[in-house]
Design a protein around this nucleic acid. Structure first.
Length: 780
DNA sequence: CAGTGAGCGAGCTTCCGCTTGACTT
């Protein structure tokens, strides 16, 4: 082997190998190959913050393999991404693989085309140690923050909690927003709407809203009364041309937002499906902060748009990133082949692909031209006007394929054509009324809108957005929940002839789906961090340290000095907080238990939120009970708290045995005759009836009998193939076949009892070249 | 497999950013 090229992502190796020919072997590092050792701090603080790096266990084999390849290569080309992390990966490779500097080159390309790669090979450079140092500073800072604050949380609040530069700010955003919502005072106001008739026979009805809004019922009634003797005429008709411009092609964050709004995908699901599309070669890399499209992509888009929509729809646009701290090592997310408007794949993949295609294509299309018309209608005895707005799309441009959603759900641009009217024309009032509205509190975050906010603040990176959400959910700092709409009384006034009629109606509003709410633990941890680590919780902390990292990358600062300047006061604060702060369980006195006359508290216990009867300082040990889902320290009532102590609960008898309901390690259960039966998610252990318990017991027995019956049928021999038995079976992961000691997965819905021998053989032979998951492979 | 929570003390937990495999019955 003459040349060894090492890139980050294995998805790229085949293509690059094809471009470079037989003299080059392309391998991938699969991201970072080594990191600070996981155990303990692994930073020698006494020795200028010297990091202790270690190859992770699951990277050992890969590193050995690269080591062998390096021995056989004459020249090694380090082709990791062109950003801070990529530069560090190249350096770690050089250090770990002990590469000879004279035979090692650093190259970068941000586009996988033959030209770009050949150009890169022709223009190698050295590893940029300033950039590497900036990465080391970033890494060391994050470790110091995370590994010094987290243990304080363990001792002061609860074990196994965590804090970090990114996750703690993400939680703060959610806690702060909840606080805003709690303090929000809804104001009521009245809108007045009127419908007029005119002489345009094709379009004779005009829906309008009054330019003024009212605060009180009296004002509304007075205004509506004044209309009884009024006449109405067209005061002005104004048309203004407007242009709409397409959104740039997707980055990780905008893809997550749109997939959430348009397809209802969670952030994790979007990334999983995007990964599949990337691996199948359908799209470019999915973790990127760049909106840039390659010249090749621009040309492809132009072709496709010309072919499908005509030349008028083409407008080549080059986008530039405005996001803080963007590193732009990759292209924007786009289809690899813009000629494919869709793909033949399962529904979720296809829908995500189509979204990516539309967004990329639309970004290269002409502006939409819109005419916006505003009609003002004068009231003869008043100064307010009724206003009507309409839009007419003169040229649809990019709207032909794509319109970006907003979080308010205003999803479409459509023509709303107004009647043709002349100034001074007299109009007839058809009907008029007013209804009460309420100002809305700021919206809670969704996964995707939280990521957008973090991105705007320059916090986190495309590769960590989804894992950050997972972390704060896993730590139970936040929960993702729905809220049912609440019914509200709304006052409505209608002008009927000479009378103003007041009515009331019920309106539902405020329903929420998949929103992020802080938990008790999230609020308590946030409060603690805000009190003791104000600087790290500052929304601008990351932006400030990024400035330092940039200075290191430009050689203006030394990374160890930057870290020292941060660490000395930080560590002093850590020591003081450990010593001086009190244990913080978020405890609240709920009331007094009427039976025992002891205090009842709600607080964070070792395993979650609990209610406690009695004080810990007393001789007697207090009683504890876990809170139910949905209950919280702030809102639980004494009654609810005391109700938690009714478990274990005897609900009755069945077959001569006592039935007891309680909550165990694995959730709520029914116990009878020392056997356990889990309650389903919808059953409430405090409420569940004897009848329902019997139903649960019986259905579990039935299910077990059915299992027994099936077990007796398997393994099932389908027949012989080349003298060897083909056997079907049902395992933990669905139906599968066994043949010659290997397993082959059957399609999900296939019936392993009736599957024919031919089908089975074809499954076995077709998966011979690509091993199915779970198939036994020969071990070395 | 069907707790725990006080207090004693051992031993455990934790960060952010790069990137994909593990691979079962």
């Amino acid at each position: 082997m003459k040349n060894l090229v090492i890139v980050e992502s294995p998805g790229k190796t085949k293509t690059i190998e094809k471009f470079l020919g037989a003299d080059y072997t392309v391998k991938s590092s699969r991201g970072h190959i080594r990191d600070l050792a996981k155990k303990e701090m692994s930073i020698d603080i006494e020795n200028q913050y010297e990091p202790e790096y270690q190859v992770a266990d699951d990277k050992r084999e890969l590193v050995n393999e690269l080591q062998r390849d390096v021995k056989n290569a004459e020249v090694v080309w380090l082709a990791s991404d062109e950003d801070r992390e990529g530069e560090a990966i190249a350096w770690h490779l050089r250090e770990t693989l002990k590469l000879d500097p004279s035979k090692t080159h650093r190259i970068v390309f941000n586009e996988i085309t033959e030209n770009a790669i050949r150009y890169a090979i022709a223009h190698p450079r050295d590893i940029n140690m300033n950039l590497v140092d900036a990465q080391q500073a970033r890494r060391v800072l994050d470790r110091l923050v995370g590994y010094e604050i987290s243990p304080i949380l363990w001792s002061k609040i609860k074990p196994a909690l965590s804090a970090g530069r990114v996750q703690s700010v993400a939680v703060r955003l959610i806690v702060d927003r909840e606080e805003e919502i709690k303090n929000f005072v809804s104001q009521s106001f009245y809108k007045v709407n009127a419908t007029f008739s005119c002489n345009d026979t094709a379009n004779s009805i005009l829906d309008t809203e009054l330019s003024n809004r009212f605060e009180t019922e009296d004002e509304v009634v007075a205004f509506l009364r004044s209309l009884i003797s009024a006449s109405f005429s067209v005061k002005s008709v104004e048309s203004k041309p407007r242009r709409r411009t397409p959104a740039p092609p997707f980055t990780t964050s905008t893809l997550q937002q749109e997939a959430s709004r348009k397809l209802g995908f969670s952030v994790a699901r979007t990334m999983q499906i995007a990964q599949q599309l990337y691996e199948e070669g359908y799209i470019t890399y999915m973790r990127t902060d760049s909106v840039n499209l390659s010249e090749m992509a621009l040309a492809m888009a132009k072709d496709e748009i010309t072919k499908s929509f005509g030349e008028k729809y083409v407008k080549t646009r080059r986008y530039h990133t405005k996001i803080k701290g963007a590193q732009e090592a990759h292209e924007a997310i786009r289809p690899t082949n813009l000629g494919n408007a869709t793909i033949n794949a399962e529904s979720a993949q296809r829908r995500l692909y189509e979204l990516i295609w539309k967004r990329a294509i639309a970004s290269q299309m002409s502006d939409a031209e819109i005419e916006k018309t505003t009609i003002d209608i004068a009231i003869s005895n008043g100064s307010d006007t009724f206003v009507c707005e309409g839009e007419q799309i003169l040229f649809d441009g990019f709207l032909k394929v794509y319109y970006e959603s907003t979080d308010d759900g205003d999803d479409d641009v459509h023509s709303h054509i107004l009647p043709k009217l002349n100034v001074g024309e007299v109009l007839g009032l058809v009907d008029c009324g007013s209804s009460q509205h309420f100002t809305q509190h700021p919206p809670r975050y969704t996964e995707a809108s939280l990521i957008k906010k973090l991105e705007d603040l320059g916090i986190g990176r495309p590769s960590t957005y989804s894992p950050t959400i997972s972390t704060i959910l896993k730590r139970e700092y936040v929960i993702k929940e729905d809220r049912e709409p609440v019914s509200q009384t709304v006052v409505v006034f209608t002008l009927k002839g000479d009378e103003v009629i007041r009515t009331e109606k019920q309106e539902k509003s405020g329903s929420e789906k998949d929103k992020l709410f802080p938990t008790d633990i999230g609020s308590v941890v946030n409060g603690f961090l805000m009190e003791h680590f104000t600087d790290i919780m500052d929304y601008n902390f990351t932006a400030a340290v990024e400035k330092d990292f940039d200075d290191i990358a430009e050689g203006k600062k030394e990374w160890r000095k930057v870290i020292d300047k941060f660490y000395v006061p930080f560590h002093k604060n850590i020591r003081q907080t450990q010593q001086n702060s009190h244990r913080n369980s978020g405890s609240r006195l709920v009331g007094v238990d009427p039976k025992s006359k002891k205090n009842v508290y709600a607080k964070i216990g070792r395993y979650g939120t609990v209610v406690q009867i009695g004080d810990t300082s007393n001789e007697e040990k207090p009683l504890f009970a876990s809170m139910k889902k949905g209950q919280s320290i702030d809102t639980i009532t004494l009654e609810e708290a005391l109700a938690l102590f009714t478990l274990p609960r005897t609900v009755g008898e069945y077959e001569g045995n006592e039935i007891v309901v309680s909550i165990g390690k694995f959730g709520p259960y029914v116990r009878m005759d020392s056997k356990f039966y889990s309650l389903s998610k919808t059953d409430d252990p405090y409420e569940v009836t004897l009848e329902r318990c019997i139903e649960i017991i019986d259905s579990k027995r039935l299910a077990e009998e059915e299992k027994e019956r099936l077990r007796a049928l398997f393994p099932h021999e389908i027949g012989l193939h080349e003298g060897e038995a083909v056997v079907s079976n049902i395992g933990r992961y669905g139906p599968y076949l066994t043949y010659k000691g290997s397993n082959y997965r059957l399609p999900k819905n296939a019936d392993p009892l009736t599957v024919s021998l031919e089908e089975a053989v074809s499954i076995i032979s077709s998966s011979a070249d690509k091993p199915a998951r779970g198939r036994k492979t020969s071990k070395k």
